[in-house]
């Protein structure tokens, strides 16, 4: 069987896409390595709570039901009603215990409430989530180091 020019070009493309896929995998493993090594950078980030909050609020839930709850909580948060924000977020936690977006928000909320130990506890608990993305893990790690 002869390999035509078209077949050859097709193979080159396939190889290109496979290598692209492997490159993205490598980026994931970058975050998976011991995050403690970034402690100095983490401490810098911690000083900028506004930046952290903006990043936390960008984290979405995996389930639509929890996403709806996040929107409601964020709305109360914008209005400065911290108790109600907490109540809504904890409601979300009762529905799904594996949503990093909830742990991140609860951690930041506790920092705003001046409850650093609780902030750290929520973040540390969030680190157990099997499905947390690398970015979520990094953010959770930052809050867990806060204590």
């Amino acid at each position: 069987m002869k390999i035509s020019k078209t077949h050859f070009i097709f193979l080159v493309f396939v190889c290109f896409f496979v290598s692209c896929a492997s490159v993205s995998k490598k980026q994931t493993s970058f975050y998976d390595i011991e995050i403690q090594k970034f402690s100095s950078e983490i401490k810098l980030l911690l000083n900028d709570l506004d930046f952290l909050k903006s990043e936390v609020l960008k984290v979405n839930a995996k389930r639509p039901s929890i996403q709806r709850i996040l929107l409601e909580a964020d709305d109360y948060w914008r209005k400065g009603n911290l108790n109600q924000t907490n109540s809504v977020l904890e409601r979300g936690l009762r529905i799904a215990k594996d949503e990093s977006a909830l742990y991140l928000r609860l951690a930041h909320l506790r920092i705003e409430q001046g409850l650093d130990k609780e902030a750290s506890a929520f973040a540390s608990r969030g680190l157990f989530n099997k499905d947390a993305s690398a970015w979520e893990l990094l953010l959770l790690k930052i809050y867990s180091e806060e204590n």
Binding site: N86, L93, E118, A121, S124
Partner: peptide
């Protein structure tokens, strides 16, 4: 009045 969770590691 709320009774928030108060976890502590």
């Amino acid at each position: 009045f709320s009774y928030p969770s108060k976890p502590e590691q």
